[in-house]
C-alpha cells in the first residue's frame, strides 16, 4: 500500500467519526475560565450561575457555535438536556476543538509537529469531513441511526459493492446511508450530571443492512466510534465524537422542519420531551 493511499484511507476514519460530526460567535453567557484544566469551572456551578434561557439557545446556530473555543462549546453542552431521541434526517456539520488562542487545540499542542491528525501532509480532514459527511438519519422507533454520505470516492477502496448500498434523498440530493449505529440514552463522557443520547458504533455489525466494508471501520474492531448528542432546541443538537473514548471533534445536527415546527413553543416554555435520565439536579433551560 502506498503512503499516499494509506493517508487517504487514514482520512476515512475521520469521516467515520462524524459519522459520528459563519457568523459571529453567539452572545450567550459563559462562566469565566482559565487555561489549565484546574481553571475550568465546575459544570454544576456554570449551570447554576449562568443558566441558559430559551432565548439564549435561540441565538446559537450550527454555524456560529463553531466560532467558540472548546471550553465555551463544552459549557454550552453541559447546560443542555438530552432532549428527545431524534427521528428523521438531520443535516450535519463538524468542527474541531479550538483552544483559547482560537487555533485548533491540537495545533496549539503539537504545532511544531505539523498539526498531525488534523492536517496530515495537507490532507484537510475537516474539509474532507465536511465535504463527505452530510448528516445523520435517525430511526427513532428502531433505536438505530445511519450516516448520510454524498461522495463515495474516498471510501471506494474499502467498499465491496457500492451499488448495494442503501440510498436516501434529502432536499433533492442523493446520499448513501452508511455506518449504522445503535441509539440509546447513556453516559456523557464530558458531563456526568445527566444522560446524553448515545450514537454507538460498537455493535454496528448487528444492525440490519450492515456492510462489513466500509461499516467495519467505525465499529469495535475499527475506530471504536461513539458519539453523544444533546438538544440545543427542537431540531438542533450539539454532538461530540469520540474514538476509543478519546474526544476528537464536535458536530451539529439540524432539521429545519422540526425547528420551525417546534421551535416557537420551546421559545415560550423552554419545555421539550425528554427520553433520557435527567438526574435529580435541575435542568435549567426552563423559561424565565
Amino acid at each position: 500500500m502506498t503512503t499516499n493511499r494509506l493517508f487517504r484511507i487514514a482520512a476515512v476514519p475521520m469521516v467515520a467519526l462524524v459519522l459520528g460530526a459563519c457568523d459571529r460567535a453567539p452572545s450567550v453567557p459563559f462562566a469565566p475560565y482559565g487555561e489549565g484544566y484546574a481553571a475550568r469551572p465546575d459544570f454544576a456551578k456554570v449551570e447554576h450561575d449562568f443558566p441558559l434561557t430559551p432565548a439564549d439557545l435561540e441565538k446559537i446556530t450550527p454555524k456560529n457555535i463553531a466560532k467558540l473555543t472548546q471550553e465555551e462549546v463544552d459549557q454550552i453542552y453541559a447546560r443542555l438536556p438530552a432532549g428527545p431521541i431524534p427521528d428523521g434526517a438531520f443535516d450535519g456539520t463538524l468542527f474541531f476543538p479550538k483552544g483559547v488562542s482560537g487555533d485548533r487545540r491540537l495545533a496549539e499542542i503539537v504545532g511544531g509537529l505539523g498539526g498531525l491528525v488534523v492536517n496530515l501532509k495537507g490532507f484537510k480532514l475537516e474539509l474532507i469531513g465536511k465535504t463527505l459527511w452530510k448528516g445523520k438519519v435517525f430511526y427513532r422507533d428502531e433505536r438505530v441511526l445511519r450516516n448520510r454520505i454524498e461522495d463515495l470516492s474516498i471510501l471506494k477502496p474499502i467498499i465491496d459493492d457500492p451499488d448495494s448500498l442503501e440510498k436516501i434523498v434529502v432536499d433533492g440530493r442523493d446520499a448513501w446511508l452508511l455506518f449504522p449505529a445503535k441509539l440509546y440514552c447513556g453516559q456523557s463522557l464530558l458531563d456526568s450530571r445527566r444522560e446524553s443520547i448515545i450514537i454507538d458504533y460498537a455493535f454496528t455489525d448487528e444492525i440490519e443492512g450492515y456492510k462489513e466494508r466500509p461499516d467495519f471501520l467505525a465499529g469495535r474492531r475499527g475506530l471504536r466510534v461513539r458519539d453523544e448528542i444533546r438538544m440545543v432546541r427542537p431540531g438542533f443538537y450539539l454532538g461530540r465524537a469520540y474514538a476509543d473514548r478519546a474526544f476528537l471533534l464536535n458536530f451539529t445536527l439540524y432539521n429545519a422542519a422540526i425547528a420551525e415546527r417546534d421551535g416557537p413553543a420551546f421559545l415560550k416554555t423552554g419545555q421539550a420531551p425528554e427520553d433520557c435520565w435527567s438526574s435529580t439536579s435541575r435542568v435549567l433551560t426552563a423559561a424565565k
Binding site: 484544566y37 484546574a38 475550568r40 499542542i109 464530558l190 474526544f247
Partner: peptide, 13 residues
C-alpha cells in the same frame, strides 16, 4: 486518556 493539560479531566478537581 486526556493528556492535554488544558482540557477538563486532565487531572482531578
Amino acid at each position: 486518556r486526556q493528556v492535554d493539560p488544558a482540557m477538563r479531566n486532565f487531572g482531578q478537581t
